[in-house]
Structure formats: C-alpha cells, structure tokens
C-alpha cells in the first residue's frame, strides 16, 4: 500500500476529481455512496395549492416543484427527524417556506423557477432561475405555498445531491484510485465532497461510541 495522499486533479463548482493513494477501496466506496444517497439537502416536500387554473394538474405541479434543486445553506437546517421540534410537519428551524404567485394577463407565458421566493430565508433559492414550472394562458393563475425540508437521496431522488460519483482504479498502480463526484448544485462540488467525508466520520464515531459504551 503506497503512502496516504490525496491530490486534486480537477475541481470546479459542479465537479471534483481526486487522485487518492494509500486508502482502502472499501473506505473510498463508502464516501462515494454517501455522496450519492446519504448526504441531506433541501427540496420542496409539502405543497399547498392555493389557486391553480393552469392546464397542469396540481399533483404534477407539486412533483415538478419537488424536483427543483435548491441551494442549501451548509449546516443550517437539520433533518426533520433530528430536529428538536419532534413534529412531523416541521418547524421554522427545520423547514423553509417558499411561495409562488404568478398570473398571465393578456398573453400566454411560462412561469420559471426564478419566481419562487423564500421570504424567511433568501439564501434558499433554486439552483437555476430558468427551470420551467408551468405555462399559463391569458387570465390563468397559480398561487402556491410550499415547504422545503432536508432529506436524503435514498428516500427520494429529489434529495439526491450528486447525479454521478465514480470510483476507479488507476491502471498499473496498486492502491491508487480516482474519485470523481458531480454536484446538482445544492452544494458546490468541493463542499459536497467534504460534507460526505464528514458524514462518514460522524457515522463511524457513532459506531465507536456504541462500542465504547458496551465495554
């Protein structure tokens, strides 16, 4: 096994590629799987349709809202099950209200994600302002109150922070791997990588604490 080293091969906002030497493949694979399905991010989960006269059904609008990736402030919101409010519907500490109020006057138009507003926390916003939500014909309206909460990719794909995470061997070199992770945009790719490693650390610590308590 070569000496432990981590080298950044490529890094930008949306993807990171690392060359890692001296670590066990199983350990790196845990990091990879955590970035894919365990790392919590914000996504719209509860939708109250106040008015919808668009041709798109309420449930379709709600589904589309859920899939919109939201910029997630790091370490600000806990998972609802880890929040001290113990409420299934959440509290202001573990959820974010997002409102949409759009209408078409005399011409048909598209309602984009840029029109979503989080009045309580402006740091929560869609990753892109150009995602179409619905199209409205003249005089049609849509008015929605939605609540975003933290969740994990294993529960629903809308909470998936990384579309791809690939662990590969470096050819001809024993104990060397490349780990490439892409981000949807909830976190920047370097943050996503870092948070995944920290989450693995935290979970391992829970195991060691459990073992310690049993002694």
């Amino acid at each position: 096994m070569p000496a432990k080293s981590v080298k950044v091969l490529e890094a930008d906002q949306s993807h990171v590629k690392l060359k890692i030497e001296g670590f066990d493949q199983s350990y790196l694979n845990s990091v990879r799987r955590i970035s894919l399905a365990e790392l919590p991010v914000l996504a719209i989960d509860d939708v109250v349709i106040l008015e919808n006269t668009s041709p798109v059904y309420d449930e379709v609008v709600a589904h589309r809202l859920g899939l919109i990736p939201l910029v997630t402030p790091v370490d600000k919101y806990p998972l609802p099950e880890e929040c001290d409010c113990n409420s299934p519907s959440g509290c202001p500490k573990c959820r974010v209200m997002i409102v949409l109020d759009a209408a078409a006057a005399n011409v048909a138009r598209t309602v984009y994600s840029g029109e979503l507003v989080a009045p309580e926390d402006p740091s929560v916003r869609p990753v892109s302002d150009k995602i179409p939500i619905v199209k409205l014909a003249p005089n049609q309206k849509i008015k929605i109150e939605a609540y975003a909460r933290m969740g994990r990719g294993r529960e629903h794909a809308k909470w998936q922070a990384a579309p791809v995470a690939v662990l590969a061997d470096v050819e001809g070199k024993e104990g060397a791997h490349t780990l490439e992770v892409e981000s949807v945009g909830n976190y920047t790719a370097p943050t996503l990588m870092l948070k995944s490693v920290q989450l693995l650390e935290k979970e391992i610590k829970q195991v060691s604490d459990g073992v310690g308590a049993g002694e």
Binding site: A157, Q160, P163, E182
Partner: peptide
C-alpha cells in the same frame, strides 16, 4: 426537470 436516470438538472 431532471434526468430520469442520473438526476442531473
């Protein structure tokens, strides 16, 4: 909104 397979925007 997202890719059906990988989930990218």
């Amino acid at each position: 909104i997202r890719c059906f397979t990988c989930g990218a925007l």
